[in-house]
Simulated scan of single mutants.
Amino acid sequence: MADDFGEEVRELLRQITPQRSNELNILTEGVTFRKDENEDGIGFYASSNLKLVRVTMRCQARLWAHCYAYYCMFTEYAVRQSGADSGLSSDQLQVAGDFLEWAVESDIQIRLQGGSGIPVVMKDAPKDAPLPFENINANVVQVGSETIFLNALAFIIHHELAHIQLGHVGVESDLSIQQEYDADATAAEWILGVDVADEFDYLVRHLGVAIALLWFTSLAFREKFVIDSHPPSWKRLLAALEPTVKGEEDAVWGFVVLALTLHFHRYGLSLDTLSEVTHTRATVVEMVETIEQFNAGLGKESE
């Protein structure tokens, strides 16, 4: 692992919640941040005893893919509902879909091969997939995606910081699961519990938190959840958002419905089992319940 790069991390976190700069100095005092350039998996990690946070770098390309793809789809849907044109071509939307497909498949491949000792060889990302922060003339969708990406990454880092702040140490079963919920709640409050400048600021903060947990949830369509130290990501998604989303019909719920619908279609889950498909919290709750049932059945056909 490389040397401490704490000031880079602190600058990111200050950028997301500048109102809490003084609090951040206290929160991160004595904490060492180390970047891991070698780990392929989603290997963010905290040690309360060592006051250490490890930030994996290579997986962030897949987080970016989720942010860009979902926001493209969300923008296209929202703008079309108003009768306008998002400015996104069919080719751009296809690239966004391919980019998301690449991200999910890469994470699944890493999970399947990571413990086998066989080197993980991943496909290259789609050649036309955009990179963040490289185009000074980036369009509105690109800039929005970049802002969401930074919020998602900040939530994940704050989740790890929360483990240190709350004094979490290695435990098992129910207590470990509660620690994860507590770390999510603390991180979400840090990102979402501040005054926002406008509706866009409110939206991108919530979408950042949502996508961080949708990233993990997307794997549930292919990989049976068996980790007894963490709660299922689909339950974490609801728990993290519910305290601060403004209402039953908030746009954030609509975003989550659209994102999950992409995966429902991809894996052949029928929306007909839902009582009603609306862009509301009620639909998200039903979709989460469906994911749980679907995930529980993974692998049974081979038993």
Results as ranks from 00 to 15, higher is better:
163 H>N: 08
103 A>H: 08
245 V>K: 04
109 Q>S: 14
79 V>N: 03
281 R>G: 06
6 G>P: 03
229 S>E: 08
119 P>Q: 02
173 S>L: 09
94 Q>E: 15
164 I>F: 02
206 H>A: 10
4 D>L: 06
40 D>H: 13
93 L>E: 02
222 R>C: 12
271 L>R: 05
93 L>Q: 10
269 L>S: 12
279 H>T: 10
278 T>Y: 00
203 L>A: 11
170 G>I: 09
113 Q>A: 12
299 G>Q: 06
114 G>R: 14
77 Y>H: 12
20 R>L: 15
275 S>M: 01
150 L>V: 02
41 G>K: 07
172 E>R: 13
294 F>H: 15
110 I>M: 01
130 P>K: 13
303 E>P: 00
224 K>R: 15
1 M>R: 07
102 W>K: 04
158 H>Y: 12
114 G>W: 02
122 M>R: 13
74 F>P: 00
71 Y>M: 06
274 L>S: 10
62 R>L: 05
21 S>Q: 11
73 M>T: 10
154 A>C: 07
182 D>L: 09
212 A>Y: 03
188 A>F: 02
184 D>K: 02
204 V>E: 00
152 A>G: 15
117 G>N: 10
179 Q>E: 09
138 A>L: 01
11 E>L: 08
50 L>Q: 13
96 A>D: 06
240 A>F: 05
131 L>W: 06
